[in-house]
Computed example of a mutant assay.
Amino acid sequence: MTAVTPPDAHLIIDEHDPALIEAKIISETAKISWLDLQKFYAAGSVLKVAAQADLVKVALALQQDDTAKISRWLASAEIGQPSVEQAQQWYQQQTQLWAVVIAPWVLVQQRD
């Protein structure tokens, strides 16, 4: 009897390929209204990414659990939870933000 390789076997190998993970993150990044993110903000699941930071690189570091990069970004305030004032401003202005989900986090970035 001959072993048959399942058609999705390549996914097991590819799941650790940084280029493919980055491409997946890019494909899942989109603009969304802050109004639609209220329940995630209330749950403490939103991380704000500074405008000068690369949203995709931050998402990739979170997905890969790169604690050195994440710690550095947290210390420099390039990522962090939005302040109450910021959340209120986004709500009042019905701001559209770039967002991507890296469970359990929703990363958001305001780009003007």
Rank of each mutant, 00 (worst) to 15 (best):
M1L: 12
A3C: 10
T5A: 09
P7L: 10
P7K: 09
D8N: 14
D8W: 09
A9D: 15
H10D: 15
I13K: 08
E15M: 14
H16E: 15
P18L: 10
I21R: 11
E22W: 04
A23Y: 04
I26C: 01
S27Y: 03
I32V: 14
S33H: 07
W34N: 05
W34E: 04
W34Y: 15
D36C: 04
Q38G: 04
F40P: 03
F40T: 07
A42M: 11
A42T: 13
A43K: 07
G44E: 03
G44K: 02
G44S: 03
S45L: 07
V46C: 00
L47Q: 12
L47F: 07
L47W: 05
L47E: 12
L47A: 06
V49P: 01
A53Q: 13
A53F: 04
D54F: 07
V56K: 02
V56A: 00
V56L: 01
V56E: 00
K57T: 10
L60E: 06
D65T: 08
D66G: 03
D66R: 05
D66M: 04
T67D: 10
I70P: 05
I70A: 06
I70C: 06
S71E: 13
S71A: 14
R72F: 08
L74K: 10
L74R: 09
L74P: 06
A75D: 15
A75F: 10
A75W: 08
E78Q: 13
S83E: 02
A87S: 12
Y91L: 12
Y91A: 10
Y91H: 11
Q92H: 09
Q93M: 01
T95N: 08
T95K: 12
Q96E: 15
Q96A: 09
V100L: 00
A103F: 02
W105E: 13
L107H: 01
L107E: 02
R111M: 14
